[in-house]
Design a protein around this nucleic acid. Structure first.
Lengths: 209, 209
DNA sequence: ATATTACCAGACCGATCGGTATAGTTAGGG
DNA sequence: CCCTAACTATACCGATCGGTCTGGTAATAT
């Protein structure tokens, strides 16, 4: 049980998660059979079921791994010394480039929720992911997590991901980025201004019913 | 071959498409087997393969049916006598209500692209859908289909759908609606103003690289 | 009357699904 | 030295997958 066990350089569990990470993300979860995951990992089938109760557990572990990856990637893209608008733009720009390189396969959490709509555990991880994204965007924007400015940034980020996946349109991703920029500017103004100054032409939608 | 053939009130093809429409949309395409579609349609298995070459063809027909449904729904929601902002708000509000009633199962086209990422025919219908949406939103906004204003409206609509499906958050859907409202207002101003008037604090993202 | 057409019911096909069981290998720890 | 733990390889399980085939019925068109 110590970490002193040497094991075959990388454990079967790690190899399985790496394999699942590639296959689930690129070809989809339902389209990827257990046998393929195992073969691709170069691991015995029994090793899968020694480390995971069943396929669903593997899927959840895969998603948790992806969540971890998102966080690390977000920090790798982030330069805390840059101005806010640049730190936010970097997120969108990474997405746009991924589209151009044809390496974008969609948000793993959205994909999983769509592929397994009745799996509660999947929804849970997806909600965790959403909370992480919201928190991160809030910190980049320098706004309260519950603020509408952050909600709007979340919307724009999700929009960009959808355009990247379905439309494969890098230009639309960058348009979302531009909207995010304007949001940052507006938020900056709000910070320096007295609070109740901006109300020019909003809040009409509630009367739309 | 005439339309004078009586047939059992509704044809096997129609029953199959109705069944596929329910099952594919609610439980997912890959998770719905042929046998279930057939049983649910109350139809013989052979009738499926008399009307469709294979499952993929059924999926494509299902998507074409959904595209048709989207168009009809969009027109049903639309009151051409209402002001633009209301006609656009109706689209978002329908989405928000669907979330609250727990009857929203995601965009059939996005779902299909995610479930069958390597199926070209699915991507094609999805692009058709995107073109239809863009055209419709352009007409609601009274702007050119290629304008950035329409692109932004498309982004907001897709964002709302993602929040509806993954986050199940009607408030976020309505926030997207509010953003769309502001877009309509901005567009209205642009219409009445000389063209190059609005450039306060934009176009900086292109320097973000 | 006779084809033809559209349909139904269900057996059947090989392949693959997720998952289990058996048996053997390798390595470290008491 | 032997036990345990992690691993490999592979056979096997029932269920279901997408898809085919047979055989029969009822209504239409000629």
């Amino acid at each position: 049980m110590h970490s002193s066990t040497i094991t075959p350089i990388v454990s079967a569990k790690e190899r399985l998660l790496a394999s699942a990470g590639r296959l689930f993300h690129e070809h989809g979860i339902n389209a990827t059979g257990i046998d393929l995951v195992v073969r691709n990992a170069g691991v015995a089938k029994a090793s899968l079921y020694n480390n995971f109760a069943n396929k669903e557990a593997l899927v959840v572990a895969y998603l948790e791994q992806e969540l971890d990856g998102w966080i690390r990637n977000a920090h790798a893209l982030d330069n805390p010394l840059s101005p806010r608008w640049q730190r936010i733009a970097a997120l969108f720009e990474a997405l746009a480039r991924s589209v151009e390189l044809n390496t974008f396969h969609g948000c793993p959490f959205t994909n999983a929720v769509i592929e397994l709509p009745e799996c509660a555990a999947v929804r849970t991880v997806a909600q965790d992911y959403r909370a992480v994204v919201r928190t991160h965007l809030a910190s980049l924007l320098g706004a309260d997590t519950t603020s509408t400015a952050v909600s709007r940034l979340v919307l724009l980020y999700d929009a960009a991901i959808t355009e990247a996946k379905v439309g494969r349109d890098a230009a639309l991703v960058r348009e979302a980025s531009t909207m995010a920029q304007e949001l940052v500017d507006a938020h900056k103004l709000e910070e320096t201004h007295p609070p109740a100054t901006r109300g020019e032409l909003t809040k009409r939608d509630t009367a739309a019913r």
